[in-house]
Simulated scan of single mutants.
Amino acid sequence: MLRRLPGIAAFSCTACTAALGLLLSCGLPVALGAAESGEALPEWLQQRPNDPQHLYGIGEASGENARELSRTLAVVDISEQLVVSVRSSRESESESEVVVDGDEEVVRLRESLRRQIRADSESHYLPGVEIVAQQRQGDTVYTLARLSRQRFSQAVQERVEALDGELEPIARLEPELTPQTLQRWRRAHDLSAEREQLAVLLESQGTRLAAGPIAFEQVRSRIGRLAQGTRLQLEGSAQAPAVRDSVLDIVDTLGLTVISDESATFQLRLRERSRSRVVGDWTRVTITGAITAVDRVTGEVIGSLEHSVEKSSVQGEEEARARAREALIEEFGKILQQRLLPLLAGQGR
């Protein structure tokens, strides 16, 4: 009995259907055998071709769209071999260091490859996949796909050059984090992450890339958690109305969004406290506003900001409090305009 190939069974037909554009874009001839159920299985299915110049993938599928799905699974099989080669190259670097499937870099690379195959009809990772042969036996279709190692390395290096072209001007930006530079740094985060993954892939094939304009870790250190999103959840708004209004006045200009659901990246815990005293005919009110930023995923406190204002009035405490509240909204808003983004990026500790 034929056993389903490792690494293929885990992919559902629904996920694979999204990748058909990649295979159809190859535009290469396919040898489709009209084998009957009693005909012997092709030799390449029983023994995977061994060719140092190519990587081969084998896929099988049954039912509706079996021909297209088996093609997709054959390409997925190639991608899994690339990930295995990455892991093998990492293991060979040090006899004392064992890299397992759970290794963060390998896991990230595997998921990136899978996303590319599922969603990108012109994948940078698997360019020029050839469908070498395809054979039907009963309701099952078997596909043999091939990827040239040389063409793969060349295409990936071309992609790296394109990434470097986008990263170079970003790497020259001033270190100050502003709404304008934040969007570019978030773009650099994605580009440098992809470049790092491609470098690992090429290294597994025997090619080592020179350093790029800016490393992924440098970008992460610049924008920190802002790489994951700019959505804020406010806690304590009712008890700290002046602080709340300070935040709401500046979020749009900073490129941030306030939401109420659980998909927020950050939680801002708002606090206010006040005290009043009478000096002769004057009533003086001091209001202190504070914000504590928390990572919504980990619950870790990132940092905090605090500001106090004092206002006086001969018309009593209510008037003095209103003046202090208005001043806090304006002054704290200016502080947040300058310091909230660095705080969320982890630079405000």
Score class of each variant (00 low, 15 high):
Ala9Cys: 02
Pro175Cys: 06
Ala10Ile: 12
Val278Arg: 15
Ala171Val: 09
Ala119Tyr: 15
Gln135Ser: 13
Thr288Leu: 06
Val243Asn: 07
Phe216Ser: 03
Arg195Thr: 05
Gln337Asp: 13
Arg325Val: 04
Asp103Arg: 05
Gly63Val: 05
Gln347Thr: 02
Val243Ser: 09
Phe266Gly: 05
Gln218Ser: 12
Val309Gly: 03
Leu167Trp: 00
Asp295Cys: 04
Val251Trp: 07
Thr288Arg: 11
Ala133Phe: 08
Ile259Lys: 10
Leu226Trp: 07
Ile302Gln: 01
Ser308Asp: 06
Ser192Phe: 03
Glu43Ser: 11
Glu68Ile: 00
Asp101Met: 12
Gly280Ser: 08
Glu104His: 13
Gly138Glu: 05
Ser312Glu: 14
Ile302Met: 07
Ala264His: 04
Val314Gly: 09
Met1Ala: 11
Leu198Asn: 03
Leu177Asp: 00
Arg323Ser: 13
Leu5Cys: 07
Arg115Met: 11
Ser79Thr: 06
Val297Thr: 15
Asp101Ala: 14
Asp51Pro: 07
Leu113Thr: 12
Ala290Met: 08
Val247Gln: 08
Leu5Asp: 06
Ser112Pro: 07
Glu161Thr: 12
Ser304Pro: 02
Ala10Tyr: 13
Leu144Asp: 01
Val200Leu: 15
Arg118Ser: 14
Pro342Val: 04
Met1Trp: 08
Gln150Trp: 08
Ser237Ala: 15
Arg275Phe: 10
Ser274His: 09
Glu161Tyr: 09
Ile8Tyr: 07
Pro127His: 11
Tyr56Gly: 02
Asp164Thr: 04
Leu341Asn: 00
Thr265Asn: 10
Ala238Val: 04
Glu203Arg: 15
Ile250Met: 06
Val251His: 03
Gly280Trp: 11
Leu182Tyr: 00
Gln315Val: 04
Ser263Arg: 11
Ala324Phe: 02
Glu64Ile: 14
Asp164Asn: 09
Arg339Lys: 10
Glu97Leu: 12
Leu173Pro: 06
Glu174Thr: 12
Ser123Leu: 01
Val86Gln: 09
Pro49Ser: 09
Val309Cys: 01
Gly289Met: 05
Ser204Thr: 01
Gly138Pro: 11
Leu22Ser: 00
Trp185Ala: 00
Leu5Arg: 14
Glu174Gly: 11
Leu28Thr: 13
Ser221Glu: 15
Ala10Lys: 15
Thr265Asp: 08
His54Glu: 01
Glu95Arg: 12
Gly138Leu: 05
Ala171Ser: 10
Gly229Lys: 03
Ser304Thr: 12
Val200Phe: 10
Ser89Ala: 14
Leu305Lys: 05
Ala293Thr: 01
Pro175Ala: 10
Ala155Lys: 08
Leu182Glu: 01
Val297Ser: 15
Arg349Gln: 15
Ile223Val: 04
Ser88Tyr: 05
Val141Leu: 03
Gln347Ala: 14
Thr207Met: 12
Pro29Arg: 11
Gln183Cys: 01
Gly289Phe: 00
Arg187His: 08
